[in-house]
Write a protein that binds this DNA or RNA. Structure first.
Lengths: 151, 151
DNA sequence: ATAGATGCAAACTCTTTGCAGGTCG
DNA sequence: CGACCTGCAAAGAGTTTGCATCTAT
């Protein structure tokens, strides 16, 4: 679904191993666009490797993110992971809580402008959109901005 | 430092009381631009009201955010609160972890454009910048993107 | 007077860590 | 074979909740 953004050879080159749990964890995150939580990945990986532990899932997600294989993202309900490490923005539906990928606005000038204004070194920027997605719009109803619990 | 963005009369109008802990909690958040955590607010409030509980601080921060008196913000280290509820963006320094307010880009067209592209109802958008702030730049040194712990 | 708020302690959720044993290369 | 990794269980960190008591209005 999402292209592999980085070769796994890099792993071995750093003395890291490609174990079965690790491979499956990475596959699960890359196979979905749901910006999964650790718990979600755990449930999925367990279908093929029932003895895996949640701690291993956490350790690997953290490590894979640190190595640049995944993107990490803080959420009011905890950490989420994203197999798509290319530049893109996010749209969060306030009704169903789903997070959609949306194309990034490629505006190089935005960073330069802020840098000029503040004197900061601006290395990255990301825009978050909030609203109601197509599905929730069709279902009508108010936007229940109720606090989302774990997936 | 930051202007009161919303009158407290609104509170009473909704049958909510303006208690001493509540007033102090709101004051603390409004008196700083550090985007404080609950723990930070707790320590500050305790200086004037030593018997407050951390639970009360949490309850009030949550409630004040829900009522629109404060803005809530998820962070890899937990929730942060912002007394500035006006439109503005954030710059996070990857070296020191500080979060600066920066003027929002007023671009109404951005939302309309995304809505047209996706069919979503886009109600809000916010841009997050990342880099190295002026102070950290002057101090030189690499940008240690180490995980920030609690304030 | 009384609905709403508080303090305290316990419960919860998510994440991290110590350690003995297993495994990739 | 040896460094790295895993499962398990326990500990941490942050936040929420139940309940008896208190207090704004």
């Amino acid at each position: 679904m999402i292209p592999n953004n980085k070769g796994l050879d890099t792993l071995r080159a750093r003395g890291l191993r490609l174990t079965r749990p690790r491979r499956l964890i990475l596959d699960v995150v890359r196979a979905t666009d749901a910006h999964p939580t650790a718990a979600f990945v755990y449930r999925r990986v367990r279908r093929r490797l029932p003895r895996v532990s949640l701690a291993t899932v956490h350790r690997n997600l953290r490590m894979l993110a640190a190595e640049g294989f995944l993107a990490e993202r803080a959420d009011e309900a905890g950490m989420r992971f994203d197999g798509n490490t290319g530049p893109h923005d996010h749209f969060t539906c306030l009704a169903c809580g789903r997070i959609y990928d949306v194309p990034a606005r490629a505006e190089a000038g935005v960073r330069r402008r802020l840098a000029a204004r503040t004197g900061f070194e601006v290395l990255d920027h990301r825009t978050e959109y909030y609203g109601r997605c197509g599905a929730c719009r069709r279902q009508g109803g108010r936007s229940p901005v109720t606090r989302q619990r774990r997936s």
